[in-house]
Design a protein around this nucleic acid. Sequence first.
RNA 1: GUCCCCAUCGUCUAGCCUGGUCCAGGACACCGGCCUUUCACGCCGGCAACAGGGGUUCAAAUCCCCUUGGGGACGCCA
Length: 493
Amino acid sequence: MTKEVIVRFPPSPTGYLHIGGARTAIFNWLFAQKTGGKLILRIEDTDVERSTEESIDGIIESLKWLGITWDEGPYFQSHFIKEHQAAAQKLLESGHAYKCFCTKETLDIKREEALKKKGSLHYDGTCRNLTPEEVSAKEAEGIPYTIRLKVPRVEGSVCFKDIVYGFIEKKYEDIDDFVIVRSNGQPLYILSNTVDDIRDRITHVLRGQDGLVNTPKQILLYKALGAPIPEFAHMSLTLDPQKAKISKRTHGELVAVHFYREHGFLPWALVNFLVRLGWSTPDSRDIFTKEELIEAFSLEGVNRANSVFNVNKNDPKFFTDPKALSINSHYIRNIPVEELEPYVRAELEKAGIWNPEFESARRDWYLATIDLIRSRYHVTTEFATLGRAYFSDEYQIEEKALEKNILKHDGLKNWFSILADRLESIESFSIEETENVIRDMAEELDIKAGILINGIRAAVTGQTVGPGLFDILIAIGQKRVVERLRKAVSFFD
RNA sequence: GUCCCCAUCGUCUAGCCUGGUCCAGGACACCGGCCUUUCACGCCGGCAACAGGGGUUCAAAUCCCCUUGGGGACGCCA
């Protein structure tokens, strides 16, 4: 009988959700989905100084946006402080922990000295062997104390098999008598986290590789507490191009999940990109639907080497990792238009050019237009910027379009008027008819059709690039095309 | 400084466990071509890597050791 898998994602609410955290959440979520297990969301808010309500909301919102679903929670670590303290008390009573009366100041001094002597930074164990009398005496004096775990001081080591890193061994002598309760009575992360994982019956701890060194300590806690030890799987870290761990502090918004939302990423595209950072299948496949990903997911595909989130600030062409952008544009041009539409709508609303008719009378037109222009876009925001002329009559003519495709040909001043008249008189405004009119006119004038075609494109969309002109004309519509052409004559003034 | 982890194209990676099929495969980016009224899409092609050195072996990207490089941790943060 294999027991049900229970994993957890335990963010600390000290800021927005960043892509490293999101990646951890995604792996946990995928593992739960894959195994039919449960994912618990636990907010580790025991650092009262830095935890904020705003951050909690932001993290939850980002998770929801990404499409990560959890089965239990959010639980709040701060609600269980009594339990953590009780565990510490139990450890004290069972002799697994001891009270340490050293002050922070003396410890700091000792640490500095150790640093100078280039030795180990571990606690020297001053209070480890205090007699019960000495302890009582210090307590009677009212000296505040921390509680430290008593790490075995014999030959030996803590061993465990990490699912991704394999066999890991850590000698007792390399493990510090770490503090589990502060002198003000507040339990520390290492204790709270372990106690919570025990209570929540966590079977697999999937976290970043930065938690690898904590694992032996936590295993010691599990043992001292008499609890079953879960499986551990550590994942490689995400680094920046300078190979430094990505962080909110040094990278700011660029690594925030909400930044990608605001910059036109489809949530699934971000998930898809993030999951491929440090994880792969034997065929190096890049694109997965949600179902395919869950099906393909395996902890065995997790890479032990850290990966680089290839984002270069100030890159004129890519505002983020080019691969992330390419995956996003892949989805933009390949998912069913109906699925893409809500994101386009959000952008149009944000730009103030949403028209309610797009979801009623003109819905077919709206969907067809999205479909017509989407292959050129990398982010959804572009529907409202580069695609503005399709949805709104107020759009800018790009300088380049004006120069190169309009002003360069003086004749266009007259031709636009004639073209407007002729296009206006077409009875069935179709691709074939418009093309006939325009090509006939080019022939009549004995000029290359491209001059007319590019000129018209510039006039009606404001751009030098875009779909085939005749498709554009149908998308913009007869009336608006005629209006725009007549208006374009004034560019020559 | 101490402890731990890691090392294949610029980036994400396959291959490594179970040596030979790998003068190393895919993707992104880049370059060229086709398509074409422009741009994009699409298609075709190109550039580009086993960190270095020792072993082991008939044979090593694959196994072992060392060096170098990178990362992480070393907190009364989480």
